[in-house]
Design a protein around this nucleic acid. Structure first.
Length: 109
DNA sequence: CTCGTGACTTTGT
DNA sequence: TACAAAGCCACGA
């Protein structure tokens, strides 16, 4: 029987990342680096970004609650960035005049 | 094995 | 505050 759910090293890592992101409560945010550490991947911020980028279609996840260490939105696509900004605003996340989030206030522990 | 790529981070100017 | 350069890590060609 072939495994319907591949669980290689990379896949396992992705699943762990998804679990962490999924645990970020509404109204709070986290950073790529933070999620990576929580998932047991020190200095794996880029991998978190890759995991979210590779997010399987249909998979529901509060991906928008993950921003970079500067408190800003990181995206390859400005359009997606705008969407994230909107989603966060809808959850009460406030942006400063420099388009940065006050991490001290909104970052999830 | 080497190289290029990326939803990152840190440090210096 | 903004930007540039260097560092870091996993992947795929």
């Amino acid at each position: 029987m072939s495994s319907p759910e591949p669980s290689g090293r990379a896949e396992l890592r992705r699943m762990r990342i998804y679990a962490i992101v999924d645990s970020i409560p509404l109204g709070r945010i986290s950073t790529y680096g933070r999620v990576a550490e929580e998932a047991g991947i020190p200095r794996g911020a880029r991998q978190v970004g890759a995991a979210l980028r590779n997010l399987p279609k249909g998979r529901v996840l509060p991906w928008h609650r993950v921003i970079n260490a500067a408190g800003k939105i990181s995206h390859a696509s400005p359009q997606q960035a705008h969407r994230q900004r909107k989603l966060l605003a809808a959850e009460g996340i406030r942006f400063g005049e420099t388009n940065k989030v006050d991490l001290g206030t909104f970052v999830w522990p």
